[in-house]
Simulated assay, not measured.
Amino acid sequence: MKYYRLFILFSVIIASAAVKAQESTAPAIWPKLGKNDTIRVAATNDNGYMIPWIGLNEVVINGVRIWHSPEERAAYNRLRYNVLKVMPYALYAKRRYEKLESDLATVTEKKDQKKLVKDCDNEIKNMFNTEIKELTITQGQILTKLIDRELGRTTYDIVKQTKGGFAAFSYQLVARVVGHNLKNTYDPVQERDIESIIVNSGYYQQ
């Protein structure tokens, strides 16, 4: 069965190469140029006809939102403020956790791995004591969702992976007392307002 699949794969590759060879050997028919056609562009040979084309940047088109009441608009503005308030923390968590994973992949000793995790934990705690502790309950809830959006895993899963199940359970108990849930996940369909705010925030235009 494996040899049969391999034979099919080679057949497809050879057929593709043959098609490309046929396209490349066809006589090229170029479009007639006008006196103002001075810009060099890419072209594709389509059965002998050279078709010029230019790659365009992605264009995002957003509809104009219609507010049904001043209260609805005010609620959206509050949501936008909260999202933009915590988005930098979510991006920081993403960069720091990715660095931790990269660092852990370079060491094999358990004590060295524990030190890397401890250093990351202390760095997060320092930021919490100076900045994150000032967040409101709503902002904290949004932050846990955005961490899941950026990392593809919940805050609970991150703590469980780096510090163990008991620590994750303990953190979750404390979080629930103050109105947070470390298991919050992010669904861009359900959170379409948050997703729209993030997409139009400029964070990903670099």
Rank of each mutant, 00 (worst) to 15 (best):
P52M: 10
N36W: 06
L100Y: 00
V117W: 01
N77T: 06
K118M: 11
L100A: 04
T108I: 05
V117Y: 03
N47S: 15
I51L: 14
A90N: 03
G63M: 10
E123R: 07
D46A: 11
G63A: 11
K94M: 14
L104K: 03
Y76H: 07
N62I: 11
A42S: 15
G48D: 14
K94R: 15
E58Q: 12
L56N: 14
E101I: 08
L100E: 03
G63Q: 13
P88Y: 09
D37Y: 01
I132V: 11
N82F: 00
E71P: 02
E72A: 14
E58H: 08
R80N: 07
N57M: 13
M127L: 00
A74V: 01
R80A: 06
P70L: 12
E123F: 06
Y81L: 00
I124N: 02
R80K: 10
N82G: 01
Y89E: 08
L33N: 13
K99R: 10
N126P: 00
A42Q: 15
N62P: 05
V64F: 10
K111Y: 04
E109Y: 09
W53P: 06
C120T: 00
A75Q: 15
N129V: 00
G34D: 09
M87W: 12
C120F: 00
A105Y: 05
V60H: 09
V83T: 09
D119L: 09
N82K: 02
P70Q: 15
Y76Q: 04
N129W: 00
V60Y: 08
E58P: 01
D46N: 13
K35Y: 00
N62E: 14
I124Y: 03
V59Q: 14
K110L: 11
T130S: 07
Y81K: 07
I61V: 13
I132S: 03
W53C: 09
P52S: 13
Y81N: 04
M87I: 07
E101A: 07
T106R: 09
P70C: 13
A42R: 14
A74F: 05
